[in-house]
């Protein structure tokens, strides 16, 4: 009940426009474990939505449902008001949802170009890889996003942490996703690299896409996001407009001391 009220409250204070993506009453069980219990989520156009919560709160499970890695046991997913099913990662990609996974964003031994086009290379004559066009587009994308990478032919394992993260985020933008999901984009980055990555996230919004970002770092969350949804123990416990809340309140929501 509480959840529903909060859900409604969240909707009222946000703009009147229709959500681009909406999840309703999502449940996910692993054996006897209730990973998600009646969780709702709504994402509006041109919005950066932060998803926060303690370890095991269900953040990763929730975004994996949007990314098509898991299927929900209950609940519905709506895109622009129409009910849809996201049966596989490929289906999610086809809906122009781009996900940047923590840790496994890149394939280490493949080069920059091959990573940008992972899973959907540009082709000619249907089966053949069109390397030339892929290189040209990569150059274009990197220039647009002001990402500097020494050599496109270098396996990405030789890149720095910041370059790798920029590349992973850049890939999501390059595919002009309507929705970009970022799982812990600033984990394991240095100060300068973090700053650049946060700037990139804002850039995604400027390109006209909506963003869902998971992070443990509330300062980063407060720097980039418009709205914050808090999960605890597989349930949604709150949704706050950033400008009308503070770190303290969010921490209390996360720990359940509110």
């Amino acid at each position: 009940m509480v959840t529903n009220k909060l859900l409604k409250a969240g909707r009222d204070i946000t703009s009147k426009s229709e959500p681009i993506l909406e999840l309703r009453g999502i449940c996910k069980y692993f054996g006897g474990v209730h990973a998600l219990e009646d969780v709702g989520l709504e994402l509006y156009p041109d919005e950066i939505l932060a998803l926060v919560g303690d370890n095991g709160a269900g953040k990763s499970t929730l975004i994996k449902i949007i990314a098509g890695v898991y299927q929900p046991d209950k609940g519905e997913v709506l895109m622009e008001g129409k009910e849809i099913e996201i049966r596989s990662p490929r289906a999610s990609m086809d809906l122009r949802i781009e996900t940047v996974y923590q840790e496994l964003a890149l394939v280490d031994k493949l080069d920059v170009v091959e990573n940008i086009f992972l899973g959907r290379p540009l082709t000619k004559f249907r089966w053949f890889v069109n390397r030339k066009r892929m290189v040209a587009e990569t150059v274009d994308i990197l220039k647009r996003l002001k990402i500097s990478i020494p050599s496109l032919k270098e396996p990405v394992q030789n890149l720095s942490g910041g370059q790798r993260q920029a590349l992973a985020v850049g890939r999501a933008i390059a595919w002009s996703g309507r929705i970009v999901i970022l799982d812990e984009p600033t984990a394991a980055l240095g100060v300068e690299e973090t700053r650049k990555t946060l700037a990139l996230i804002k850039q995604i919004k400027e390109q006209g896409a909506s963003v869902i970002v998971i992070s443990h770092n509330l300062r980063h969350i407060f720097e980039v996001s418009d709205r914050i949804i808090v999960l605890r123990g597989g349930r949604r416990v709150g949704s706050r407009i950033k400008s009308k809340t503070n770190i303290d309140e969010i921490v209390k929501l996360i720990t359940g001391s509110l």
Binding site: F30, G31, A35
Partner: peptide, 10 residues
Amino acid sequence: QKLVTKRRNL
């Protein structure tokens, strides 16, 4: 392992 690993994935 189904139970164990998925519990880990939450």
